[in-house]
Every structure is written in structure tokens, then in C-alpha cells.
């Protein structure tokens, strides 16, 4: 049996030891201050490793993981830390003080809003283009054959939150579908009524459909090709939309030169080669 008289001091001692190990952690997260080198110096001249925090749209998750390994190999002094979530959530976090260096949005709206709110350094840079895909679980539990079936009563549509880029793009597609011959007058309303869940971001929409917890949902083409557990329902010609991804250097970044270098890399040929592997197109 544990004697209480021993347990308490032991726990405190353990906590103290762990405290010693952790006290440095917040400091480590602070980027090293570079005073000797001019800010435009290439990072290879700087002895210390620089950590760049990249906030990227959820749809970029896999592509950014690949970009990280390529970029770190080409830039040995840079370490990339990637956080992926909805562009709207990431923008809110930056506005609330999250220490990010680069923000890669799945639209130009969220990047532009960051600029307008005074939280960006410079103008947004378009770096990729995507399109939408209507997907259903491989088992297609609701038997959806065409987008018109989305308005059938009882179809469980998984969508993302109101401010999330995929939702805005999906609404545009639904509007275009509603205007087609053969689509009922109340198609957009019926689609909205069939939404059973609003997920945090597009990857969460994909995950719910992979688990067959929902019947259908709009994701990006890149998400659809990344999954073996969903199938794509073709959209009629002229109803798809082009999603332009734009990135921006965060105004509070303590290493704006390295941040800009990464943003230019992802928009440049090397970054485009990585993005293309995941199905992203070049920016318009």
C-alpha cells in the first residue's frame, strides 16, 4: 500500500524534476534573436536553427507535410512547424496572438482579411488552385448518383462551418446547380436542410465521410484523390468553382525574411512541384 506521507512528497519531487525539464520549453519556442546578421542575409550564414511556424489550411495538411521535408532538406537551418486547421480558425488564432510566421489560406478572403485587420506583412501571394468534388462514402449508403440527389429528404450532408472556405465554395456550387434545368426550385434550401453537421474544417468533413457517418459532402479535389474510402460524384459542366489559395507573412513574425522566403518558395517552381504531387494546380 502507498503511504500518503510518502506519496505527496514523491509527487511533488517528481513534479519538480519535470518542471526543470519543461521550464525551458516556452523559451525554446521563442525564435532566436538575430542581431549580428542583417535581416536579408541568407539563413545559411546564421549559425542557429530558425523555427518557422506555418499555419496552413486543413486541405494543405498532407502537402505541407511533404513540403516540410523537402524544404528542410534544401534549407538545413530552417525547421518548419506546421499547424493545419480551417483557414478561418487559423486567422482567428493569429488575430488573438498566435505566434505564426506564415499563413497559407484555402482562399484569398481570409488572407485578405488578415491584411485588412493589420496582422499581415505585405500583400497576399496566390500559390495554388484547387477545385471542388462531391464525395460519398465508398459504400454510398444513400445511393447518391447525381448532385440532384442531395436534396432528397433524409440525405445526411456533412458540411463545414460557415466561415470555412470550403463552405463558401460549396454554397457557390449549390447556387450554380440550383440554376440548372431539371433541378427543383428549392434545391439550395433542401440542401441546407439536409446538412446534419458543421465540422471544423474540410479534413474533418472528409474523415466523417470516410467513416460513413454521413452520406455526402463537398471537399476539395485534392482531398478526394487522397482518400480510398470515398468516391466522387461528378459535377455537371460549368458548376465547379476555382479555389485560389493565397498566403501571407504574419505581421508579428520575428523572422519576416525567412517567412517571406518560404512563401516565395511555395509559390515558386519547387513548391509548385510538391503541391502538384497532391493534385493542386498552379495559381491563376
Amino acid at each position: 500500500m502507498l503511504r500518503p506521507g510518502i506519496v505527496l512528497p514523491a509527487l511533488v519531487a517528481l513534479a519538480t524534476v519535470l518542471l526543470g525539464g519543461c521550464a525551458g520549453a516556452p523559451d525554446e519556442s521563442e525564435p532566436p534573436v538575430i542581431t549580428e546578421a542583417p535581416p536579408t542575409a541568407p539563413p545559411t550564414l546564421i549559425g542557429e536553427r530558425v523555427e518557422l511556424v506555418v499555419f496552413g489550411a486543413a486541405s494543405l495538411r498532407d502537402a505541407l507535410a511533404a513540403a516540410k521535408s523537402v524544404y528542410e532538406m534544401d534549407h538545413p537551418t530552417i525547421t518548419l512547424t506546421v499547424a493545419a486547421d480551417s483557414s478561418a480558425a487559423l486567422r482567428t488564432q493569429i488575430e488573438q496572438g498566435a505566434a505564426a510566421d506564415v499563413f497559407l489560406s484555402a482562399d484569398s478572403v481570409n488572407a485578405q482579411r488578415l491584411v485588412e485587420a493589420g496582422f499581415a506583412d505585405g500583400e497576399p501571394v496566390a500559390f495554388a488552385q484547387n477545385a471542388l468534388a462531391l464525395v460519398v462514402p465508398s459504400s454510398n449508403p444513400a445511393g447518391i448518383q447525381a448532385p440532384a440527389d442531395l436534396a432528397d429528404p433524409g440525405v445526411k450532408i456533412i458540411a463545414a462551418g460557415e466561415d470555412v472556405p470550403i463552405t463558401l465554395y460549396a454554397q457557390e456550387v449549390v447556387r450554380k446547380l440550383a440554376g440548372l434545368a431539371g433541378y427543383p426550385a428549392g434545391f439550395a434550401v433542401a440542401y441546407g436542410a439536409n446538412v446534419v453537421s458543421r465540422e471544423d474544417n474540410v479534413r474533418a468533413v472528409l474523415a466523417k465521410l470516410e467513416l460513413a457517418e454521413g452520406d455526402a459532402g463537398f471537399v476539395y479535389v485534392t482531398d478526394a484523390v487522397s482518400s480510398t474510402q470515398v468516391q466522387v460524384v461528378p459535377l455537371p459542366a460549368g458548376t465547379n468553382v476555382a479555389a485560389t489559395y493565397a498566403g501571407v507573412v504574419v505581421g508579428d513574425s520575428t523572422q519576416p525574411a525567412e517567412a517571406r522566403q518560404f512563401l516565395e518558395w511555395i509559390a515558386g517552381p519547387d513548391g509548385q512541384a510538391v503541391l502538384a504531387r497532391f493534385g493542386f494546380g498552379p495559381p491563376p
Binding site: 512547424t81 499547424a83 498566435a98 474544417n201 474533418a204
Partner: peptide, 22 residues
């Protein structure tokens, strides 16, 4: 505290984030 791997992503957040990401 947000959800940044290695800095603020604790175990319960990983349960959620990895589930969300599939």
C-alpha cells in the same frame, strides 16, 4: 492555447485533431 503540434497540442487535442484529420 491553440492546437500547435509540439507546443500546445496535448494528448486530448491529438485525439481530436487526428480524428478530425482522418
Amino acid at each position: 492555447a491553440g492546437n500547435l503540434p509540439g507546443r500546445t497540442q496535448t494528448l486530448p487535442l491529438v485525439v481530436y485533431a487526428e480524428f478530425q484529420a482522418g
